[in-house]
């Protein structure tokens, strides 16, 4: 028996919108720890890892570990029927081949339930160890989204370089080149507007902009984004989900020529 009640239902809607462009089908794993997902895109270049900790739910019951295979476009279709202020409850019985999404309006005058068929998904799970990164950049998520969008109108790849001077995003294409430098800036009115660079050593890596743009679909989930870079590792683009967990995107770099 599984029953997860989330008063801030819009959060689940945003999570789905954040990942459904990257991944088509995925297994949602439920355990005592929380509601999680790990899935790769079809070309196995990018990976999304989601964690919503059990403490973040108003009610969390998970009698035994459960993995539920879902088509994310179908989940999104269901969740789009929930109002932005609705309370969402996810329910499943042991051994059932369906999951139920229940939507309650804030004043309880409308209750809807949507039952969705589950599917068997044979997905590969990768073991991602904790790592020390050469550089970690924290910046406003809207700024990062803007940079990725702007650069993708010029080129297909972005070179992210971190030095003492700041973080530089560069691209080149048929029509020309572009460089955007963001300097460390801690003197802002609100902490979420700061750009903070923690650098152990300079690093420069090249990534496909198509994936970076896809990651920025998570922007509504968090005011800030953290980009962790090391020369021999995939980049980690993390959006913290307030008091609940995170959504992390991993992207393998392009091979330098």
């Amino acid at each position: 028996m599984l029953e997860l009640r989330l008063v801030q239902g819009s959060l689940l809607k945003k999570v789905l919108e954040a990942i459904r462009e990257l991944v088509t089908d995925a297994n949602f794993d439920c355990s005592a720890t929380g509601f999680s997902l790990q899935a790769m895109d079809s070309s196995h270049v990018a990976l999304v890892a989601l964690l919503l900790r059990s403490e973040g739910f108003e009610h969390y019951r998970c009698d035994r570990n459960l993995s539920m295979g879902m088509n994310l476009n179908n989940v999104s279709k269901m969740l789009r029927c929930a109002g932005n202020n609705d309370i969402i409850t996810v329910k499943a019985d042991d051994g059932s081949d369906t999951v139920t999404f229940m939507f309650e309006s804030p004043n309880q005058d409308k209750i809807a339930d949507f039952e969705m068929k589950l599917m068997d998904i044979d997905s590969e799970h990768l073991g991602i160890p904790d790592a020390e990164y050469q550089a970690i950049v924290r910046m406003p998520s809207s700024e990062f989204a803007r940079i990725c969008k702007d650069l993708s109108s010029i080129g297909d790849t972005v070179i992210i370089s971190v030095t003492k001077e700041g973080v530089k995003f560069s691209t080149a294409g048929d029509i020309g080149t572009a460089n955007i430098v963001c300097r460390q800036n801690k003197t802002v009115d609100k902490p979420e507007e700061a750009t903070i660079i923690e650098m152990q050593e300079p690093v420069s890596l090249t990534f496909a902009l198509r994936y970076m743009n896809s990651f920025t679909k998570a922007t509504p989930l968090s005011e800030t984004v953290t980009i962790s870079l090391s020369s021999d590792l995939p980049v980690v683009v993390e959006y913290k989900i307030a008091e609940m967990g995170y959504i992390r995107f991993y992207l393998a770099p392009k091979i330098e020529e």
Binding site: V45, E124, L126, P129, T206, P253, I255, E257
Partner: peptide, 14 residues
């Protein structure tokens, strides 16, 4: 075009 690496060359399958 620069070649793209796969995630499996960094992380093991578990």
């Amino acid at each position: 075009k620069q070649p793209q690496q796969a995630l499996s060359s960094f992380y093991p399958s578990v």
